[in-house]
Design a protein around this nucleic acid. Structure first.
Lengths: 125, 125
DNA sequence: CTTGCCTCTGACATCCATGTGAGGTTTTAG
DNA sequence: CTAAAACCTCACATGGATGTCAGAGGCAAG
């Protein structure tokens, strides 16, 4: 498929796909006229990349992890595996933090709703 | 306390504190010479602001939520409360997404480690 | 062939929290 | 009193993923 279709299927912009390629995260075969072509597999790859971005990884970091993704068997993924463990831990801490924040928001909402009830009760009396 | 101490206690830069004030997230009393002074409570407030930033809220959004935080009793926090529910949901979805990503990373790590074992066994034989 | 849509490269623009530096005043320690 | 350290304002810089525009070429349908 060409870049527009991949973009549509993966839910990202064409611009982003070109950027991913520039960062070494994605490869394409080129037609004689220079247009990029992709296989169906790339859809999944792109959504995974997106997922990593959403988890706060940078292009550079994702690039370092890719050996583990591409060749789940190669031995060169030594540093990649360590990097992955590192990011996994960072992500875990971040998740904990977010859950904490969500709890705080819930607390505030409860407090506010409770007060609203109080107000209504007062108004009623 | 003055701005430097608040920065140190809350673990943020002085620059950031001035920025928070500019965004209406933080207030300070000024000494005759114009220096900012804060109460102990502001430490907690700043860390909470930081937490919200870390959760992906923008200054604008945080600003909109503050009525709920400051006056857990005022009636003007109507829009604020709704905004809060909105952000709470967004955060929940984001957390789910991150957990999914973390699981994916774990899967990859397991696969890679398994292969490493295989390699070692092969080498041993 | 022409029209319309897709793609190419390259470059500049944007957002937003934060860094950084200049030039000047205030506070504190010796 | 003096020097160091902290503070003030203003303003420009940064990073990183993405948007956007310009100018040119590619490709399918009528």
């Amino acid at each position: 498929m060409r870049i527009g279709e991949l973009a549509a299927r993966a839910g990202v912009s064409v611009r982003s796909l070109r950027y991913y390629e520039e960062q070494g995260l994605l490869t394409s075969t080129r037609s004689a006229s220079g247009q990029r072509h992709y296989t169906d597999d790339e859809v999944e790859r792109v959504t995974f990349i997106q997922r990593l971005y959403a988890a706060g990884l940078s292009s550079r970091t994702i690039y370092e992890l890719l050996p583990c993704v591409d060749a789940p068997s190669e031995e060169n993924s030594d540093a990649a595996l360590e990097r992955m463990a590192q990011e996994h831990d960072r992500l875990s801490r971040h998740i904990d933090e977010l859950i904490h924040t969500r709890d705080a928001l819930e607390g505030l909402m409860a407090t506010n709703r409770a007060h609203r009830e109080t107000l209504r009760a007062t108004a009623a009396c």
